[in-house]
Design a protein around this nucleic acid. Sequence first.
RNA 1: GCCAACGUAGCUCAGCUGGCAGAGCAGCGCAUUCGUAAUGCGCUGGUCGUCGGUUCGAAUCCGACCGUUGGCUCCA
Length: 588
Amino acid sequence: MNAKPSSELLTMRHSAAHVMAAAVCQVFDRVLLDIGPATEDGFYYDFDLPHRIGPEDFPAIEAAMARIIAEDHPFERIEMSREEAHRWLETAGQKYKLERLAEIPEGEPITFYRCGPFMDLCRGPHVPSTGHIGPFKLLSVAGSYFHGLETNPMLQRVYGTAFATQEELNRYLRQLEEARQRDHRKLGRELELFSIEEAVGPGLIHWHPSGAMVRYLIEEFWRREHVRAGYQFVFTPHIGRAELWAISGHLDFYRESMYAPMKIDEREYFIKPMNCPFHIQIYKSRRHSYRELPVRFAELGTVYRYEKDGVLHGLFRVRGFTQDDAHIICTPDQVEAEILAVIRFARSMWDAFGFREISAYLSTRPEKAVGDPARWEQATAALEQALRTEQIPYDTDVGGGAFYGPKIDLKVRDAIGREWQMSTVQFDFNLPERFDMTYIGPDGAPHRPYMIHRALLGSLERFFGILVEHYAGAFPLWLAPEQIRILPVSDRVEEYARSVRDRLRAAEFRVTIDQSADKIGAKIRRAQTDKVPYMAIVGLREAASDTVALRHRRRGDLGAFSLAEVEQLLRDEVARRASDRNGDSPKP
RNA sequence: GCCAACGUAGCUCAGCUGGCAGAGCAGCGCAUUCGUAAUGCGCUGGUCGUCGGUUCGAAUCCGACCGUUGGCUCCA
């Protein structure tokens, strides 16, 4: 959530995890320990014990921790031989620790740390004594598999955090609260953007009128930009024959994410989890000359993937979603320019939505891979070169690529500093082979093209969720489902309010009238909580002078404006795609 | 899928160790015709997630299922 913590802070949090483990051992019986590392935001410790730890246990654990910290026990480093360590853990019955011990490579020192009566196998380092641990707080409990393996027993993980000062801890807790306030699931309900209906099924999104309007505006922008970038649009079916998925390899490698087949006229069809095979069919519908490459097929393609119920999460993890998908099919000497163009395209796209800070993750060839190693090399070099040209900071996951090609994942930072993976640029050396894609070269012979799979926004559902949280629900004017709301001071100006609405609507603004019987204060309050960018207040004064009293959700009362002025003001702001980031003004 | 917690009106939430289902907001009606973040009064609204069990009696206790949340694993 924040900048990377310093090593001192990490050490302190690690020590805090030990103190928490010591406290849990004091409060409960028969505690088996696993590990307790520091994380970016705090620390956790994994335990196995008969008692089920719940949030109601936190006060007791925190009290025990506070006591241990107040007693200021020194952290004592004790080096042991492997045999000693083994004997000690064996007597203590610490079976998980025994497994951890066995994983320590030969030749590495085996160390324990003792603070007070509590001793734990640990690499260290630690703060000198428990008194050096800053303000802390336990946050949550969750299950987690030993070693993260589904087949292993499930341990109980307690999360907490600690900071050097109370001030920093408070700030972190405020940030958590801020993130809760921005949660797209909460705002999605309050602003009537979308819903997930139990009657329909989990992970399936209903876009309500306001959310659908935002999506429509995103799509409209996306389409215009794609035309400008030289893409062609395609539309493809939602289902395809089993044979298609057999050729593509999805039935071998992706089956667990695909839904059960349906039988149509005695033949099996699958709902698509990806769009690629269809785009490839369009490419293959005729021969292609090298002169017409690159071909860039783009589609807002809706796919369905099975996700385990436990991982579903609002708009971020769903079972049906629409990718802003494209496949670029090109010759070897076009690869570099195409990759660079995609990266620049992604960047301009995010810029429009107010995301400025970008970083990348490059994944290279794994052990088991298909395709010509020379092609892998060229592709990887092109990816790396584009990142360097665009000066995007990146980490490399050596050998972390998919078996069919290297890729770049691009991440952006939102308004409150969280990172989101959005775009992905992925080479595919597998499908062109499987589907025998070719183009005719200058030599008159068929050649294998490069295929690049890319998504800029990722999925519209997920992107929309990120946008909601990024803007805290206060969409910039160009994206706001309702741009301006007319607030009549009394119903004596109903007629005038309607004429203002009609004129603004004719100028293609998204405008409504608050028809309620409320007083003006209540209407303003409602427009504010609905996060409508502009309010046009009309009373007898305005009706007489053919003006409106303009109010902005963030800047407050702007004074009297003629309708021509309002139109100009809004038009300029839409054209700039200006965003007033932190949403509304603080409540008075 | 696994571990844990949760599920009461459209929303936010009360409802004690089992004894007549509540509030605020929203909605509707009436009155008010109002000037920059909540006008007043009244009314409607619930098979307490579903199914089963225990009990004279279940929102409350037990079980199964469905869903949600926090994680694990996975990922757009």
